[in-house]
């Protein structure tokens, strides 16, 4: 085929404090309503605990807390997005999740460099879609997977 096809990425869009974030649909296992979370002591602040996800004990991360936003009590819009990363299922608490969007790859821009924001390495890019601004997250970095892997490689 001679004509070039602009590739689309299908993403799940969710809300956190009036901002819209997105993760690729391929990484998402399911979206669940809020349920009882069993607290796991002596873990990082953003880890809220574990839930029983169809027989699998699944850790839950509060994304607001992880991204440095203030935590809010759950309401009827609160959702848990179950993502699958490296054979591990992890739940992300978000304010709301209700949108699946196709993003053309060529519309993804690099995250704007903000002075003094060196710690933020988990943004994969931003997309302007009509009048919406969607922030694409790098889940591995959000969940500090690289740190876990680093620790593991040191241990070995």
């Amino acid at each position: 085929m001679a004509e070039e096809i602009v590739q689309d990425v299908k993403v799940i869009v969710f809300q956190l404090k009036n901002e819209e974030y997105a993760v690729p649909v391929t990484q998402v296992g399911s979206i669940e309503k809020m349920e009882h979370i069993t607290r796991v002591p002596n873990t990082e602040n953003f880890i809220k605990g574990v839930i029983n996800m169809r027989g699998i004990v699944t850790p839950i991360v509060d994304l607001r807390s992880r991204l440095g936003l203030e935590e809010t009590p759950a309401d009827e819009n609160t959702r848990i997005i179950i993502v699958d990363l490296a054979d591990t299922s992890i739940g992300l608490i978000v304010d709301a999740a209700n949108d699946v969007v196709d993003i053309p790859v060529d519309k993804i821009e690099e995250a704007p460099q903000v002075i003094g924001a060196i710690d933020i390495d988990y943004i994969d890019g931003v997309v302007k879609l009509d009048d919406r601004l969607i922030i694409l997250l790098d889940l591995r970095k959000v969940l500090k997977f690289h740190e876990i892997e680093q620790i593991k490689s040191i241990e070995n």
């Binding site: 069993t38 796991v40 002596n42 574990v50 839930i51 029983n52 027989g55 699998i56 004990v57 850790p59």
Partner: peptide
């Protein structure tokens, strides 16, 4: 049940189980 490889080395917790009411207990 194991806590999986995301939550490792939690002090004094060796694993988890699912109780009759569907909730997780450590």
């Amino acid at each position: 049940k194991s806590l999986g490889n995301y939550l490792t080395d939690i002090f004094a917790i060796s694993g988890a189980t699912i109780l009759g009411d569907g909730q997780v207990a450590l």
